[in-house]
Each structure stands twice: as C-alpha cells, then as structure tokens.
C-alpha cells in the first residue's frame, strides 16, 4: 500500500481486456448490449469495432484504486467515457491506469487518475475519493 500523501505518484498498473472478458463482464453485469460482443452490430451503429463497456474500464480504474489503497472504502468514483476501448478479436486491449494523490483532507484522499489505451485517454475527468 502506497502512502496517501498529497502529490504521491502511484505505481502505474496495466490490465488486459479480451473479447472473452467482455462476454464474462456482460453476463456478470447483466448488460447484453451487442456493441460489446458483436463486431457487425458495433460497426452498424458507427463504432470502430467491438468496444469495452465503459463500466468495465471504470472497474479497472477501481481495481487500481483498491490495489493502491489496500482496499480502502471508496466514497466517490466516476468518469466520462470519452474514447472507446476497442477490443480486438484476437489478443487484448491494454488499459493503463496511472494515478496521483491530489489531496488529503477530512479523512479522505482524492486521487487523480489517468486511464489510457494505446496512448490515448479513454476516461475523462476520472476521479476517486477514498477514506484515508
């Protein structure tokens, strides 16, 4: 567990996302949207291919927060899904979660996150607040 001191840079974590995982996430989250599983449907609605659920990407950010903080209680978590994570039929997309401690006050720590795939930010204004 990293010390949650203001300005602390947290270790960057990288997570693979595969098509198989999208199917498992869709079942676990109860989200049957075919844009996360079916290339034809995804292309038909104008997407660049099968994309990860935004909430799966946010779940990976939450996973990083849990790893950094030793499973600290999360008070706030959120992001905009600004750019899709396109998941190839073979292999995996890699979601990279970087973070810094922005502020520590009133028993909570605010973490600023940067979540990228292929060098492009995929979450907008991602933010997590945990009990510290």
């Amino acid at each position: 567990m990293s010390a949650l001191e203001p300005g602390a840079v947290l270790p960057t974590l990288t997570y693979d996302v595969t098509r198989e995982q999208l199917v498992a996430y869709a079942a676990a989250a109860g989200d049957p949207n075919p844009i996360h599983q079916d290339e034809e449907v995804a292309l038909a609605v104008g997407l660049p291919g099968v994309i990860a659920h935004g909430m799966l990407t946010l779940a990976l950010a939450a996973r990083a927060v849990a790893e950094w903080t030793g499973g600290a209680e999360v008070v706030e978590l959120g992001a905009k899904f600004t750019s899709p994570v396109v998941v190839p039929a073979e292999g995996a997309a890699q979601v990279v979660v970087a973070g810094t401690v922005k502020a520590v006050a009133d028993g909570t720590a605010t973490l600023a996150l940067e979540v990228t795939c292929d060098g492009q930010k995929v979450l907008g204004a991602p933010k997590a607040v945990v009990r510290a």
Binding site: G54, M55, E76, L77, G78, A79, K80, F81
Partner: peptide
C-alpha cells in the same frame, strides 16, 4: 453508449 458514470 454510456457517456459518463459517477457514484457517490
């Protein structure tokens, strides 16, 4: 498409 999600 999910555009944004925030939880408190």
């Amino acid at each position: 498409v999910h555009g944004e999600q925030r939880f408190a």
